[in-house]
């Protein structure tokens, strides 16, 4: 995995939850940064150094989904996991449409969280690989239907297949 895949931003205004999640993520080998507000999270996440963001939905200065909304546009390779103790069907559907890689409902068990975060990190790595393959094809100056682009499409498909096969999780 690339370094960014092991860099995680944890966003939660509940100090106890945040501290526990930070400790747990560190035990998983993540390089962890944490904060408690949307504004602070935006500041950290916009640097682009994080592969994974775990964000609570209800934060003192706004809805955590705003982080997902903005980062899915500016940093589409970032894997964003939403979490909340007060889930609603509307919020889950909105998260799905914005590209959240998962949605965790509190209280959660740590085994579940481990699986979710490892899968999120893996997805970030695959996204970077696909982007790099595309960049190489574009650098080679091939046309949209050229052999290199076709090869990239094939590799993207292979990456998608590998991603599923290696997730090893059935919910």
């Amino acid at each position: 995995m690339t370094n960014s895949a092991r860099k995680i931003l944890v966003v939660d205004d509940d100090g106890l939850v945040r501290e526990n999640v930070v400790l747990f993520c560190e035990r998983l080998g993540f390089d962890v940064t944490s904060c408690a507000t949307v504004a602070s999270a935006m500041g950290h996440a916009s640097t682009g150094e994080f592969g994974v963001v775990l964000a609570d939905c209800f934060l003192p200065d706004g809805n955590g989904i705003k982080i997902l909304e903005e980062m899915s546009l500016s940093h589409p390779d970032m894997s964003i996991v939403m979490m909340t103790g007060f889930p609603s069907i509307e919020a889950v559907i909105r998260s799905l449409r914005l590209g959240a890689v998962d949605y965790v409902i509190k209280p959660f068990n740590l085994y579940e969280l481990k699986t979710i975060l490892e899968r999120a990190a893996q997805k970030h790595t695959y996204a970077l690989s696909a982007r790099e393959a595309l960049r190489l094809a574009e650098t080679a100056g091939s046309g949209a239907n050229g052999p290199i682009t076709q090869d990239v499409d094939k590799r993207r498909s292979q990456i998608a297949e590998t991603e599923f096969a290696s997730s090893g999780v059935r919910y």
């Binding site: 889930p87 069907i89 889950v92 559907i93 799905l96 998962d102 919910y171």
Partner: peptide, 20 residues
């Protein structure tokens, strides 16, 4: 029959959209 549980499962199954 939308539910939080099925919508979360939908995210995990990487569906493109969830329409009620």
């Amino acid at each position: 029959y939308p539910s939080v549980e099925s919508a979360v499962s939908a995210i995990r199954s990487k569906v493109t959209d969830y329409i009620t």
